[in-house]
Amino acid sequence: MKALLEVSGISVSFDGFRAINNLSFSIGPAELRAVIGPNGAGKTTFMDIVTGKTRPDEGRVLWGEKSVNLLRMNEAQIARAGIGRKFQRPTVFEDQSVTENLMMALKAARAPWKVLVWRPCPADHARVAALAAQVGLADSLTRKSGELSHGQKQWLEIGMLLAQEPRLLLVDEPAAGMTLAEREQTTALLVDLAKTRAVVVVEHDMDFVRRLNCRVTVLHEGSVLAEGSLDHVTADRQVIEVYLGR
C-alpha cells in the first residue's frame, strides 16, 4: 500500500538544540497511528513541520498519490491539500459562536472573493447541525465558543477538524481536560474516522493509547525509538529505559 504521508530524514534545530533529529515516518491512507514519547520528545514539532508551521533544516515531506513536496507549500495550502490539525491547547475562535466556528471550517472555497459572496445554503446549515450533534454541541450552536467548558472546546475543535474533511488528521493530545466518559467517546470517534482516512494521535495517557488499539510510534529526543504494536514497544528495553521506566 502506498503511503499517504512520507516523511524522511527530517531534522530541525532551535538555537543549536536539535528538536528533531533525522526523523522518518510514514502513514497509509486509512490508518490509525499513535505517537507517544516523553515531554519535549518533539511530537508537537513534528506536527509543526508536516503542517508547514516550522521549516525543517533538512529532509523531505511528501504527500498523496502524486508525492507533492509539502515543504514548498505554506500552511494554508497544506491545509487545503487535506491535512487537518487539532492543537494541544484547544484553539477555537472564542469571540464567535459555535455555528460560526464550524461554518468557517466547513469544506468550501477559500479564496477571499469567493468567501465574500458565499452564503450558507440549507445543506450547509444541516451539515453544521449534524457536526455539532456529533460532538455533543447540538444545543450550543448559538453560544459564543468562549463560554464553553474546556472539554467542550476540545470537542468543538474536533468538530471543526471534521468539517474540513481532511484526508489526514493530526491530533495533538485530544484527551487533555476530558472526563473518562469523554475520553472513551473520543477513542471511539478516532477509531471510526480512521476507517476512511489517516489519523495520527499524540497522547500521553497509556490507557487511551491502548483503547486505540493501533500501531504505535515512540519518539525520543527527536527521532523514532521504536515502532510496532503497543505490546511490542512497551516490551522494548530502550523504551522502558527512557520513558516507561520513569
Partner: peptide
C-alpha cells in the same frame, strides 16, 4: 456579516489558526 467577517475576526484573534483552516491569511 458573512463568513468573510468570521475570517476577518479570526485573523484578528488568532491568525495562525486561520491558516490551518486553509485560508490564505
Amino acid at each position: 456579516s458573512g463568513k468573510f467577517g468570521s475570517v476577518m475576526r479570526g485573523i484578528r484573534d488568532d491568525e495562525a489558526r486561520v491558516r490551518f483552516l486553509g485560508y490564505s491569511v
